[in-house]
């Protein structure tokens, strides 16, 4: 296959970026999207052009490093996949593919397609944990957790922190990411203890980072490679309102 690529190139955070057009020759349908970029990069290196920088690591859809806006969709076409799990067989000979970095103020471009997602880490720092220090905890079976709760918590905990939800949201909102962590912990009895301060602190941190607001487009849910449900956002909103109305022990 031969494809035309329109790729965002930007030297560093300070410089202006622009789109460059490249041709990808000999694309094998079994390649992953990132492998296709590898091949393009080898080709660019051969021509003396700086290779395209992009984040990637595990290449099996779990580390959350890859972060490409492919043809206007976060992680490209197809539900429930990251860019590293997207295979070239979904494209056709001669297709034109636009590749852009995640776009959001809290995700500044570092170089080419690489963005800085440390804002996500700071949101977790604000309260995305249970304050259990090492040692001195009870036996694991001393805290029974109903299977439906454990399962639902796991659904939320599956988040890989890639930022596709933000990238896909028309408002660049991080609600799904935050809601997933808030819900994961709040659904478990050991996490209930800090649920109220946690939801306040994490939402405050999210707002401080400059993410947009949720206006319920549900694009996040559609883009999420782990198909995390947007009802966690409703869950978080409920938790947040309860906390605002009754912040103290009730």
């Amino acid at each position: 296959m031969k494809l035309k690529l329109r790729i965002w190139r930007q030297k560093n955070a300070q410089s202006q970026g622009r789109f460059e057009t490249y041709t990808a020759e000999n694309v094998n349908p079994h390649m992953s999207f990132l492998e296709m970029l590898d091949v393009v990069n080898e080709d660019l290196l051969g021509k003396g052009i700086d290779p395209i920088a992009f984040d990637h690591d595990c290449r099996e859809g779990i580390c959350g490093a890859c972060s490409l806006m492919i043809n206007g969709e976060a992680h490209g076409p197809g539900r429930g996949v990251t860019a590293c799990q997207l295979h070239m067989r979904v494209f056709k000979e001669g297709d034109e593919i636009t590749v852009e970095p995640w776009r959001a103020r809290p995700f500044p471009v570092v170089r080419d397609l690489v963005v800085d997602r440390s804002s996500f880490d700071r949101i977790i720092q604000a309260g995305g944990y249970i304050s259990a220090s090492t040692g001195g905890v009870p036996d694991a079976n001393a805290i029974p957790i109903g299977k439906p709760f454990a399962d639902k918590a796991m659904d939320a905990a599956a988040c890989i922190g890639c930022g596709a939800c933000v990238a896909a949201c028309p408002n660049a909102s991080a609600m799904l990411f935050v809601a997933a962590k808030v819900s994961h912990l709040a659904l478990l009895p050991q996490g209930r203890i800090e649920a109220k301060p946690r939801v306040s602190a994490m939402i405050q941190s999210m707002d401080n980072e400059g993410f947009g607001n949720c206006t319920n487009h549900f694009e996040c849910e559609a883009a999420c490679p782990k198909e995390i449900n947007a009802d966690f956002i409703a869950r978080m909103n409920r938790e947040y309102l309860q906390t605002k109305i009754c912040p103290e022990v009730s």
């Binding site: 206007g72 636009t98 103020r105 549900f218």
Partner: peptide
């Protein structure tokens, strides 16, 4: 929150 927009943006479900 998104000072630079996408060149191509294809929302899926909105």
């Amino acid at each position: 929150a998104r000072p630079i927009g996408y060149r191509r943006y294809d929302p899926e479900v909105t």
